[in-house]
Design a protein around this nucleic acid. Sequence first.
DNA 1: CGGAATCCTGGGAAGTTCCTGAGAGGCTGC
DNA 2: GCAGCCTCTCAGGAACTTCCCAGGATTCCG
Lengths: 230, 230
Amino acid sequence: MPEKLRILVVDDEPNILDVISMALRFQGFEVGTAATGQEALAGVRSFKPHLMLLDIMLPDMEGFEVAQRLGAERAELPIVFLTARDTTEDKVRGLTMGGDDYVTKPFSLEELVARIRAILRRVGLDGNESSRIVFDDLELDDDTREVTRAGRHIELTDTEYRLLRYLMRNPRRVLTRAQLLDHVWSYDFGGDARVLETYISYLRKKVDGGGPPLIHTVRGVGYSLRLPRS
Amino acid sequence: MPEKLRILVVDDEPNILDVISMALRFQGFEVGTAATGQEALAGVRSFKPHLMLLDIMLPDMEGFEVAQRLGAERAELPIVFLTARDTTEDKVRGLTMGGDDYVTKPFSLEELVARIRAILRRVGLDGNESSRIVFDDLELDDDTREVTRAGRHIELTDTEYRLLRYLMRNPRRVLTRAQLLDHVWSYDFGGDARVLETYISYLRKKVDGGGPPLIHTVRGVGYSLRLPRS
DNA sequence: CGGAATCCTGGGAAGTTCCTGAGAGGCTGC
DNA sequence: GCAGCCTCTCAGGAACTTCCCAGGATTCCG
């Protein structure tokens, strides 16, 4: 069995830390955690992560400082920064190195995991994984964000895209309403759960419009991406 | 023999606590119980469960608070929350993010056990277990909720599905009317016990329609899933 | 064989869940 | 600050499930 990829998650809000840790563990990563800059620095040395998830707002120092203090190790360690919505973009851009990326809070788990996998792919660690997901004649490329059905291009909005990507990452499996909302929408979404139905409807119009339906309702449970049963 | 999986059940209603504990013990789990948030916290530390079943309405604190106060242990411990039906959705939302799940009261034991097993499977603890149940040429996959007989797909409603799943989990055993009602219907079901007959009838039409009958009546007792005695 | 108990199944009624169109409000880019 | 796009809300109606009922079929037992 190949060694599990290790990710160090650094955030001072326990809730966020826990949710992210659990989610990444479910994705098959080995997860270490830290709540302060000091802990993060120690964690890098002892845990030797392949990737670090680093909140910019930490109690003792800024996330950037953590990155700088890493010294030589820094070059080997890709970082995904977690930033508040109002962090000025140039601040982030200036300080991130080639392989890094950032995600603004509040984010959806789907998006976070996608970014992590994208980086690991670029660094060549997430071995067999590809940025292309294919299901039947439906294809999605996560690098170019391009979606096609039977070769025909499909234009999707951001939310539609994330929803479809989550469905395609879990083909044939029945995903509950709650799972879809929790993974595709950001964690602070407190609105009406019926948005989901609206977006399923949008997706159906765009994706299932030209061809046999792939998005199926499982009444009382949720939705599922699968081939129609003849 | 592999160590038994431990589950900590937290609920302040003694009846519920008993019913769930019994059911889980019967499923081969080692069960610990707690009736308050404090007890739950202590229970996690001493009992070291692999999974916790946590009611949201506790006398001393909300279930969420228990989860939060767990601190570092939290990220290692999957939780299935028990919520009242009228718990506002936004409160429930976020619960499945990390990989946790929730079940709304009133629930059926069958559903509860299914959710627990699904999570343990995903965490990699329920080792050899797979989401597929097979009996003769009848197959059921709990991830995709797909049911086939001799390769032919069978479309089932939610109640039909849960009933069949319970039968398939206990093949060849004679299940009494009471057992079936208690496990497949929610524990507060106060209706006419003859629904069961109706649903057996539905299932027979769909499942036994194409092939030798697998669902057998045991007069005066209940039903059983077995091969026909030729 | 006859009567009683049990079970089967078709036909709805009531209730729930889901779909979709219309539109308000917010954000973005120009 | 305006236009266009996106997200989310809402409501009516369609579709589907669940459950109840009742008549008929089957089995059991004296």
